[in-house]
Design a protein around this nucleic acid. Structure first.
Length: 110
DNA sequence: CACATGACGTTGA
DNA sequence: GTCAACGCCATGT
């Protein structure tokens, strides 16, 4: 692992950790906040790496569509939805309901 | 060193 | 409005 990359990952983790309960954010929003608008995919990659870290609630991070794209990467396919619902986020068909409301933009609220 | 892959996003048809 | 293709950048082989 390269130090610089770790820094990027660390930044992503920092943002995800600061996501309020009952709120979700998107990979692109995080990438944009970090100034890496074109690295939205890398954010997802970071989540994959963060998969082992308990401090990083990856379940609060969804794609721009509000769809739980990474649910398959969790232990159980339903775990992600379960966690979100447990926090008060309505999820249906692997999609966050009222995504516009629960959406948390670090660039605006942080 | 070059090729293929991926928890995404944007643009064009 | 939906669907397909391209681009971006880090990782793994």
């Amino acid at each position: 692992m390269k130090p610089e990359t770790l820094d990027f990952f660390d930044r992503v983790y920092a943002i995800v950790r600061q996501v309020p309960i009952g709120r979700v954010t998107s990979y692109g929003a995080i990438a944009r906040y970090l100034g890496a608008v074109r690295s939205a995919r890398i954010v997802g990659y970071a989540m994959n790496a963060a998969h082992n870290l308990e401090d990083v609630p990856a379940h609060r991070v969804v794609n721009r569509n509000g769809m739980l794209t990474g649910k398959f990467h969790f232990e159980g396919s339903k775990l992600m939805q379960q966690l979100l619902e447990s926090e008060g986020v309505q999820v249906e068909a692997d999609q966050v309901q009222d995504f516009k409301q629960v959406f948390w933009d670090p660039s605006e609220e942080l």
